[in-house]
Simulated assay, not measured.
Amino acid sequence: MAATLADGVPDKQMAVVLEHIVEKAEDLNACLRDDVDVPGKNKPLGAQEVLVRNKFAGVNFIDTYFRTGLYKAEAPFGLGREGAGEVVGVGSEVPESICKLGDNVAYLASSTYAQYSAASADRVYKAPADVGLDVLTTLLTQGLTAQYLARDSFPLGPGKACLVQAAAGGTGQLLVQVAKALGATVIGTCSKRKSDIAKAVGCDLVLNYDELSQDEVVDRVKEATEGKGVHVAYDGVGKATYQMSMQCVRKRGTLVLFGNASGAVPPIDPLDLTKQGSIFLTRPIMGHHIEDQADFASRMDELVAWYKDGSVKVTVQATLPLSEVSESHRLLESGSTQGKVLLKTD
């Protein structure tokens, strides 16, 4: 049976397509084209695929990794890993319990810097009527990352202390709030100008890495934890901070490396983990934490519940048109972001 498409879906669309690596954010605008095939028109939707007319696409550091070649992709390739909008096409095997034509959804997929995107039904989440699509887009990659870090990479709860590097960034803010919702003590790092943000989202102690040396940060973390260190350090900054994070972890604690904002972390000698107190090291990715659609929906339900009860607040710093995709990456790479950056794609 063929997929069902809504009336008015065009053959072509505007989308960002890279024919080669783009090192500088300022050159990304040149990759916006208006002749890109709409999924489901020239090539049929898969039986378990959904076509979405996008309203928002989220901008994340992983997009810059693909753009610059840190993560490999075969050209030509699109950018974007998340989006939200209206369902305008459903494959023949997509149950209505997941979505139907006309539903608003948030989803994880590739090539979302586009007016239309196809997503696998097991990564589609039907939008609650009382939650905006901009909020849901923010709760996708960044929110789900915070959720699995605090639930799975190291289960937080009362009596547990964690360090969150870049606590005032997009993912950092959500991770701090999730950690507090679970009852943990949170030590956050950020620049001095972002201290108020880190405090506002719930950090019990804020350390400014532009005023303190890395050794001083470690000393302050130890002082705040009775000389032991934190149970877990969450580090999405990468190359610039991973050694500091490692030194903040207590004996048999856990170091979670989940990003490369300052560059990729070099290979780590296992003996360094031994010297630090037989600590554990993990480098998780989201794809290994979402098993199926039910799991995806359950994780999103928890994030939405926290949002509704006020435990987790969402900050959207900038919403830019697709024509300003260069600016979206410049903002992210500048280190000046204080919340989510979205592209408005409709």
Rank of each mutant, 00 (worst) to 15 (best):
P10D: 10
V201R: 06
C190Y: 06
G236Q: 00
D219N: 13
L303A: 00
Q214H: 14
E19G: 11
Q142A: 09
H20G: 10
G132E: 01
G335H: 00
V131R: 06
V206K: 02
Q48S: 10
K12L: 14
A168Q: 11
H329G: 03
A294L: 02
V217I: 07
G40N: 08
K24A: 05
L303W: 11
I21F: 03
S110H: 15
L257P: 09
L320F: 07
G83H: 10
F296V: 00
G263K: 05
H288F: 15
V237I: 02
S191C: 12
G85M: 10
Q338T: 13
E226M: 12
R252W: 14
K344G: 00
A75F: 15
V206N: 04
V304A: 11
I197P: 07
S195A: 14
E74T: 15
V87P: 09
P128R: 07
G91A: 04
R330A: 13
Y209M: 08
Q247P: 14
Y71V: 05
A233S: 09
V314R: 00
G58R: 02
V314N: 03
G335V: 00
T254I: 06
G83Q: 01
K12Q: 15
G277I: 00
G40L: 07
E49R: 06
V249T: 05
K192Q: 11
L140D: 01
G80F: 08
D204T: 05
D235Y: 01
Q338N: 15
A3E: 01
F61H: 02
I279A: 06
F61S: 06
L320Y: 10
L45V: 06
L331A: 01
V50M: 02
G78A: 00
L28W: 04
V90A: 00
L79Y: 03
R252A: 11
V265K: 13
L320P: 07
A150T: 10
K194A: 05
A3H: 06
I62W: 08
V232P: 05
D27A: 09
V186A: 12
L273G: 01
K251C: 12
Y107E: 04
A119R: 12
